[in-house]
Design a protein around this nucleic acid. Structure first.
Lengths: 242, 242
DNA sequence: ATATAAAATATGTCCGGACAAATTACCACT
DNA sequence: AGTGGTAATTTGTCCGGACATATTTTATAT
């Protein structure tokens, strides 16, 4: 399927990236000019610019008219080292109580399709729950869990979930988690969720989306957690990299 | 200063973005083809493609060969903010432009005292600024920087800051950063800050508070960054611990 | 009515050109 | 040595063209 060679500009970008990573071009130094790249690689100026644009998108270089292409990082600025681990995350999950309120199959609308990286209309399962510190305590978080539906045992188990779970990943034998991608943004709690939590309608929340991947990098499920109010603070320490 | 007209492709991207935001093109629908844009705006195919590329970078559209340009979001999805080491943070700072709007001495009230871990009434300095991707672009973040005032050279340098800085830590010779503590919560943008950013009053924001410590663990300064809107997403990867 | 093949459509890759704008380098003058 | 002006260099904007590739639509066959 992808037996075709990469586009030329991709190859050149990869080459330049490697050279930067291996110290041929240090941070603060200039890459070859467009014209030099055209000459050294027998390409058009357009192709040279496309290659450099990839490095801009990687946040490895900055370009300035009249000046040149400055190296500002020596590796792709994409996903970076964790500041926490999957084990930490699983421990957090085990220390709180998730009450599953609703479970059903849905056909993915745009937002669910975006979460699960699948096509609109794909059959999915959706678990809706409330998380609290322990039984009897007021919930502090609304959780929505999504997975592409299949005929696999895990989908079946998720559809059968009732009541409270403490360690979702463990109790449902979800399998070995290879990695988790986590993203956060601020938004408003939806009207339904505000009602579930006994909150006014226009309540801000910190929304944390976690995508769980297995050891082969395949997406297992996505969990969307909404923590209402400015009082919920997510803290972490950044280490000095060495 | 920026009396020059914007490049044509920027204008067309802005126009298309507004049309998407106002519902002319719904999520899931197709934008005009390249050829249609060329005809309706009397531009070359190259310029049409540059305009659409801006919308790709905004994460508002996806393009597929043979198919067209699909709307996937109805507002700008601001770039992912992925920081997990001190070096990442310094790099991020160098890649964006902080325009210092206001600098003055204050006596710490309760909230500033809590930030700086000092007593109420302690003399402090406060820098207020706006952060944007580059000169001429709309600010996407309000920054407030605090430090306990002393007779030290750094306090003096901070009080003398004017205009734009790109790498605050480096340009002001702030010294060696040993660690950074970072916390996040969701809140509302203050009325003053909303006005600075040209936003409605009741706009949610992701507030990120960073406390910078030197290598001896002493607090250097605190920066409070407010990123308005649900479009700003902070992401990170969690690794499986070994 | 359904399946398959062919044609049309829409974006992707890559070439070339020209002029504009910003920065750097160089030179002349004080 | 410092300053100002000019020229050279480098990237940015925008035009045009051609062919390749992927998707959608249409036509044809069963």
């Amino acid at each position: 399927m992808s037996s075709l060679p990469k586009p030329r500009y991709h190859q050149i970008a990869d080459e330049l990236r490697k050279e930067i990573e291996h110290g041929r071009y240090e941070i603060g130094s200039l890459l070859p000019t467009e014209l030099q790249l055209c000459e050294s690689h027998a390409i058009s100026r357009h192709t040279a610019r496309e290659a450099l644009r990839i490095l801009i998108n990687d946040r490895m270089v900055q370009r300035r008219q009249g000046s040149g292409t400055l190296v500002i990082a020596n590796s792709r600025q994409r996903f970076n080292h964790s500041i926490s681990t999957v084990a930490d995350l699983l421990q957090y999950g085990a220390n709180t109580r998730l009450k599953i309120v609703e479970t059903h199959k849905v056909d993915a609308d745009e937002s669910v399709a975006a979460l699960l990286d699948c096509k609109v209309g794909t059959p999915c399962i959706h678990l809706h729950g409330l998380r609290s510190a322990s039984k009897g305590e007021a919930p502090f978080c609304v959780s929505d869990i999504y997975r592409v539906a299949g005929r696999d045992p895990l989908t079946k188990r998720l559809l059968e979930v009732r009541g409270a779970v403490y360690a979702l990943i463990d109790e449902l034998d979800i399998g070995h988690i290879g990695a988790v991608e986590q993203s956060m943004n601020a938004d408003m709690v939806s009207a339904d969720d505000a009602a579930d939590l006994g909150l006014p309608k226009r309540t801000v929340c910190l929304r944390i989306v976690r995508r769980y991947f297995d050891t082969d990098g395949k997406l297992i499920l996505v969990a969307v957690n909404q923590h209402p109010g400015p009082e919920f603070v997510y803290s972490m320490s950044l280490k000095q990299s060495r």
